[in-house]
Design a protein around this nucleic acid. Sequence first.
DNA 1: CTGTCATTCTATGAAGTGATAGAATGATGG
DNA 2: CCATCATTCTATCACTTCATAGAATGACAG
Lengths: 218, 218
Amino acid sequence: MTSQQDLLDTLAQVARALGNGHRLALLERLAQGDAAVETLAVTTGLTVGNASQHLQQLRRAGLVTATRAGKQMIYRLTDERIVSLMGLMRQVAESNLAEMERLVGRLFAEDDAGGSLEAVSRHELLAGLESGKVVLLDVRPTDEFESGHLPEAINIPLAQLEEMLDRLPHDREIIAYCRGPYCALSHEAVQRLRQLGYRVRRFEEGYPEWKAAGLPVT
Amino acid sequence: MTSQQDLLDTLAQVARALGNGHRLALLERLAQGDAAVETLAVTTGLTVGNASQHLQQLRRAGLVTATRAGKQMIYRLTDERIVSLMGLMRQVAESNLAEMERLVGRLFAEDDAGGSLEAVSRHELLAGLESGKVVLLDVRPTDEFESGHLPEAINIPLAQLEEMLDRLPHDREIIAYCRGPYCALSHEAVQRLRQLGYRVRRFEEGYPEWKAAGLPVT
DNA sequence: CTGTCATTCTATGAAGTGATAGAATGATGG
DNA sequence: CCATCATTCTATCACTTCATAGAATGACAG
């Protein structure tokens, strides 16, 4: 009877490790690929010291592991399932919390004035790639692209979008993706490319979800 | 950019709601069936006041809903997926946390002296039921059994096990189940029934997992 | 419309969490 | 073996969470 509750308490520790926005941001970044503390601190906007502390907590909860590489500590997710776990939590939150719906709405509302910006589902994307009729565009920073991306994706970081337009065809539909459903990069890219006359839509998921689903990555 | 972090903060609230052993216990009890505050307080060993507070938090996180029924407030899980969420968290914790492994080991070790107590998988159970060669035994308290159980299960609450033995056949294999993988009831039942000469094994999951998988319940 | 029962609210103190700054550690390159 | 860089550890303060006890609310039965 007592060890029953001990188990739940231990499980609760894991949940508590997930119970902080900054730590979730760290996990989301780690889902893009392994990274050192400073990289993680920069992309999440934390100080190095603070990021380190949060990473310790994630480590104690068994969610990340760290290995030393020279002066740096490289952190990685222990488990592909952590991506699924966050995804499931997201789904539950989205369908049960009004606040969540409001925030998601706000994220998507800005650019949906023109309508017809529905995101492309995984199924639809697979079909499009199969048929060869679409071009896949990865708008994440180059380092994230290089540590893993969808097959045959072209990488144009959002910051260099206008400079590298020559790599995009005008005559095929473009599907843009980035870090995940809450990542703003692909939204932004779609908006800007549409203004330039491209036929482009957004993939509703991102690289981590694709990988966690067991689909091929490069 | 900012609403990106707001989303993660909101998501973190949900995780924080899961980040307490007592609240997980409440959710596990609710996975057995809807219940009033006092029932929940009794089965989790909390005072009514404290249970009520925890339930408020779960409600704010969108994990449970409450409806009034006369003097009582009946709480229920908002979503079948919450069972999956806890299950996934459990899996991640079990494979990445040494402490978790230790506790699970302890829960199972006591009665495994004789060996051969491997639990029955869902697949195996389905096959056994199909063939009609096994009898399914639900050892949870009657009120939980009545708010839902596996098809064709016989209910003998653990407390009345010896009194109601006449309902169990000697010539067929018995498969016992209870609230879930961490629930001790079916372990205990298996141990005691074996001593009495029954051929009996434990189902490795419980009622909530069965139901969450979309399998038929009564 | 009063008493009772189930539940929620409020106030309190103890314990835990999060951010900051600065000291300490560990690896590396001269 | 000293200087540097990346990271972790430590101490501190503000803030949140948890359990408890007792008051307040809301529904119902007489």
